[in-house]
Design a protein around this nucleic acid. Structure first.
Lengths: 191, 191
DNA sequence: TGGTCCATGTAAAACGTTACATGATTCC
DNA sequence: GGAATCATGTAACGTTTTACATGGACCA
């Protein structure tokens, strides 16, 4: 249901081709909604049928023509209506937590390795977010009303990643103090 | 792919029927992996075919028989192998952030209402988590090695909800200081 | 007598993933 | 000369969601 909304919100920010959207879903919008190019093309076709978007074909020399999509008034109404309907909490699906929940099945070193790996991934993403913050939102006081909203989604990402880092540290140090680990931590990860 | 893993991890904790699993996926395991009863029944059939689980039918008087599922040695190996393969970050899909990203389309009061609503939902869940913490993990020093892992998943939930609350507060107070809100905040939510 | 709980499932539709396909251009 | 980028898509398959279906037990 909500891929359509994510696409419309992206087109609201700026008209794009399917190809451009796919790239934007790989950063920015993609930080809170993920979608592949195949999904995007399929959904664009549907949105056009529903008159939520229109196309403008851009002829290009030496490369495939571009279909540039725009949100219509009808699309905006559709979005506006949706925004007024309360959403429930988004369900989580997290592999790492499934692993952890049954972590006693394997040597603690296996789980520790995975935790350290995830800590690094979250750290990298946090740095990425902070770079965006510095580059695009250096002066919070003077943000346009459009920018405020996008800034707040970024702040959510930063908060989220900081929380992960904090938790990873807690989990790592807790697992390290497990008595069985005095030996196990030195074993190769496959054990 | 990973619904099977989530079910196996749940069965590892304790053998259950499909019905019981569905209930467990509504709390505990469900806090980090969500699944409906239809998915669970279908996946159980597959897992049985793959010999990752076995059934034991319990005859019951006056109510439908129960199929109690157990994880097999093979199922444990399957889980163990999976735990050693690094996972990537779980992709997010969050309606609220999509709404926020395009929030400038509607009156700020609409978004503020949604933020306050979400703040309440997160607050409720945090309280729920903290109740579990107090009841089942009162003494962190003396946890069994099984319990440590489940405690850490709970701690993740607590961390996560606290992060959301903090961010909601930040977002609400940022939106409240928008100049347009001096008037807009008093309008009915449908505006 | 009406609703919720127990306990299992089927069927169709929507959504998501993986693989395949094309073809020129630009970069190394 | 090979890889990546631009730009679009199709096809097959797998997963998830939504709705439907059954039927007794128990509670208010």
């Amino acid at each position: 249901m909500a891929l359509s909304h994510a696409i419309l919100v992206a087109l609201l920010e700026s008209p794009s081709s399917g190809y451009d959207l796919a790239k934007r879903f790989d950063g920015s919008v993609g930080f809170f909604w993920d979608a592949s190019h195949q999904q995007i093309y399929r959904e664009l076709a549907k949105l056009e049928q529903a008159h939520h978007i229109t196309v403008e074909t851009i002829e290009q020399a030496g490369r495939p023509n571009k279909k540039n999509y725009f949100i219509t008034e009808r699309g905006k109404v559709f979005l506006t209506d949706w925004m007024a309907v309360p959403s429930s909490l988004s369900p989580l699906k997290d592999d790492l937590l499934v692993k952890l929940f049954g972590g006693y099945l394997v040597n603690p070193a296996v789980i520790l390795k995975e935790l350290r790996h995830h800590r690094k991934l979250h750290q990298t993403r946090l740095v990425e977010y902070q770079a965006i913050e510095e580059r695009f939102f250096p002066d919070v006081e003077t943000l346009s009303s459009t920018a405020v909203y996008q800034y707040l989604t970024l702040r959510n990402g930063i908060q989220f990643e900081q929380g992960w880092l904090k938790w990873c540290d807690e989990a790592i140090s807790t697992l390290q103090t497990l008595p069985s680990l005095a030996i196990a931590d030195d074993l190769p990860p496959s054990c």
